[in-house]
């Protein structure tokens, strides 16, 4: 146990030190990787623990980007006020949206979420305050170290929150919902309330990630902010790393971001394909994610993969 904590602390220290020994390219890659890890970890709250697959969390990222951009570019407010504004909007939107759609289960919920980002993107490109199709330009601040450390702090906060969830009554409620929602209700779990709370938490962290990203790149538009490929990535990274675990989404996001970066350098066009292939392989061979592989493989060796298949095939 102590060894594990030490390893974790060393990993965090190493990540925090990147701006001091890494070059500009590595820092920029780091910001993107840390932010997408925040998205994966946020997705994990509802998707991993409660089993509700959302393909629409990018809407909170978009709202976060727009919240910060509107506050800074239209109202000349400082960044931190923009972040509070952005998070508030996203959480309110999650609560409002969650009320009708979190009553849907399984594929119904998943499919509804597919449409959210497209709808919000259409809305943003029709609103004056959001700069319509053109988008908004934010004030420029050149300090990648600051953005990097802010992203790392955000990821740490999201991960600590998930660590708390994994040990709390709240987390048990989400897990019970994932395992059998009817049985959870008859045991006394107010499923709707817990699911909305989980979505709101996800919205909070996702929106702040979007806000940091907007300020960092200083320019946003509807297509780039409500970007549905983000949904693809956060879902895949979480599933690959280990849904419903504390570190799985972070490991999955950092590993896949790194592989993607290498691939994008050499075979730029096929890099997106790679994500699709990862998910096909992961669902078949690693249904419980990368973090389950360690323990399972130690016990079963190669039979680990066979056992996974045998369990679910017809």
């Amino acid at each position: 146990m102590n060894g594990r904590w030490f390893a974790l602390a060393a990993a965090v220290a190493l990540l925090a030190g990147v701006p001091w020994f890494g070059n500009a390219v590595l820092i920029q890659f780091g910001i993107n990787a840390l932010l997408i890890a925040v998205l994966a970890q946020s997705w994990n709250i509802l998707g991993g623990f409660a089993g509700y697959v959302s393909f629409g969390n990018s809407v909170f990222y978009g709202l976060g980007s727009y919240g910060v951009a509107i506050a800074m570019a239209q109202w000349n407010l400082p960044f931190w006020v923009g972040l509070i504004f952005a998070a508030t909007i996203a959480v309110a939107f999650a609560a409002l949206l969650g009320w009708p759609i979190l009553r849907l289960r399984g594929p119904y919920f998943a499919i509804v979420t597919l449409g959210i980002s497209a709808a919000m993107s259409a809305l943003a490109s029709n609103l004056d305050i959001a700069g319509k199709n053109v988008g908004l330009i934010l004030p420029l601040t050149r300090n990648d170290t600051l953005f990097y450390e802010a992203s790392l702090v955000l990821l740490a906060a999201a991960t600590l929150t998930v660590a708390w969830i994994a040990r709390s009554r709240f987390g048990m409620a989400l897990i019970a919902i994932r395992e059998d929602e009817d049985a959870a209700a008859s045991v006394g779990v107010n499923a709707t309330r817990f699911k909305i709370a989980a979505l709101a938490m996800a919205a909070f962290f996702t929106a702040i990630a979007g806000g940091i990203h907007a300020y960092w790149i200083t320019y946003i538009d509807p297509a780039g902010s409500f970007d549905t490929t983000l949904d693809v990535r956060m879902v895949i990274m979480t599933m690959f790393g280990g849904p419903g675990t504390v570190l799985g989404p972070v490991v999955g996001a950092l590993v896949l971001s790194a592989i993607y970066e290498v691939l994008a350098d050499s075979i730029s066009k096929a890099a997106a394909l790679f994500f699709g292939i990862v998910i096909l392989v992961a669902v078949i061979f690693l249904p419980r994610g990368l973090v389950d592989l360690g323990g399972g493989f130690r016990v079963l060796r190669w039979r680990y993969f066979l056992t996974n298949i045998r369990q679910y095939r017809i």
Binding site: P107, M239, L280, P287, R313
Partner: peptide, 23 residues
């Protein structure tokens, strides 16, 4: 191979298939 697993898994698998075919 996965048809008897949770709906979540088949949903994700076909989602991955969609990504592969699209790209």
């Amino acid at each position: 191979l996965i048809v008897r697993s949770a709906l979540l898994n088949t949903l994700l698998f076909t989602f991955g298939l969609d990504v592969v075919l699209t790209y």
